[in-house]
Design a protein around this nucleic acid. Structure first.
Lengths: 207, 207
DNA sequence: GGCGAAATCAAACGATCGTTTGAGGATACG
DNA sequence: CGTATCCTCAAACGATCGTTTGATTTCGCC
């Protein structure tokens, strides 16, 4: 199951095992001893390479979020402000990069880690996420606002928040997003994106 | 902040403090020593009254979910099968009882506990929830299916799942559902219910 | 008032937690 | 070859975890 091969450098082996165990057992539930055992490295390696468990948690987020939000913003830049752009386009820019995560390594597990971060009301973690990646949500919200001009600011925040909840829930794999064996991976991803976009667009545009 | 007064019996004081600390720090993050200290009872009282920490967690769920899902099902029975019933009515039967929870005690914190349970992929806890309360979601899904007959079973499950995600996210208070000081509590609850119902209905009915 | 069950208490149990230490091995460079 | 730097390792640190024990107090009831 683990994607941490013995040929990888120690740091990445730790990050891979951490992502998997944090997704499976939570940040407090996964111990450094389980984690280093799964990664096949010495217990002290975590504190040597990352300084502490908390910094390791941050690094798990940074590695994926830099890539994920980079792609999201790149996709948004291409369409933002364009008069032909639809709500569905903006939702696609937000959703598709997240679904693509499930491609490389155990990136799909990361969405579960992200869902846990939402559930944790830990201030340190929330502050870290808000400071480093809050601007992404702000840019997407601004573009939604441009496309839904008759919504009050309050209404807009409400709906974006509900969309976030639905997508986080769905993409972290609680739902029944199970690919059937006769459907190729990329086609399944397209269908998933269509489902999510159609649902979210209807909610955003609701009268 | 705690609703555990010194006049309450020990068992309920523990349950109240547990609900608050589980919401704030998670099931693994909240220790029995913090918990019993907050409740003002002896450390051994948890194991005496509940047997173990895991059984205490289950009892926290049981206490609220019996009440919450009882009201949900009662509201659903009144309208299920009726030809005049709308999607909005069914959503109201699901949502309003949850919003009413925030009235008694620290019931609002329980929605955060519930959100954590979704994030935990712990098998024991999921099995407990599924066995004891799975029939509620099944009945609501059946009624949605009756009102959306042209949806395939797969489509229906998809949308109900997305609605669940949005509502769990919103009701556990991640969002900006902050009552303004000039709005009375009951009016704020009505407005919140309207927001949630309108959004979810649009998503369910999307073409 | 006295007896037995129920409840509370301080204290300790072994296990596990994140972190630190200091010695030893690997590696690159003069 | 020697040495300086990066890395790994087994072992131990003190703290905290859930749970158990056995004595003590509280309470209902004859």
């Amino acid at each position: 199951m683990t994607v941490t091969s013995s040929t990888m450098p120690t740091k990445e082996r730790i990050l891979g095992a951490a992502e998997e165990l944090f997704a499976r057992h939570g940040f407090e539930g996964a111990s450094l001893r389980q984690l280093t055992a799964a990664a096949g490295v010495n217990l002290a390696a975590v504190n040597y390479h990352f300084g502490s468990k908390d910094r390791l948690i941050e690094e798990v987020f940074r590695r994926r979020l830099d890539q994920l939000n980079g792609r999201r913003l790149a996709a948004l830049q291409k369409i933002a402000g364009d008069p032909d752009t639809t709500i569905e386009d903006v939702l696609g820019a937000f959703i598709v990069p997240a679904l693509e995560l499930s491609h490389d390594g155990n990136g799909s597990l990361f969405m579960r880690v992200l869902a846990r971060a939402f559930a944790e009301h830990d201030d340190t973690l929330r502050k870290f996420l808000s400071e480093n990646y809050g601007h992404v949500m702000r840019q997407f919200t601004a573009e939604f606002g441009r496309l839904l001009p008759r919504l009050s600011k309050e209404e807009l925040y409400w709906r974006v928040d509900l969309v976030t909840g639905a997508l986080t829930h769905a993409m972290s794999g609680f739902g029944m997003i199970q690919r059937k064996s006769d459907v190729p991976e990329h086609r399944h991803r397209e269908q998933t994106a269509e489902h999510l976009i159609r649902f979210a667009a209807a909610g955003l545009k609701s009268p």
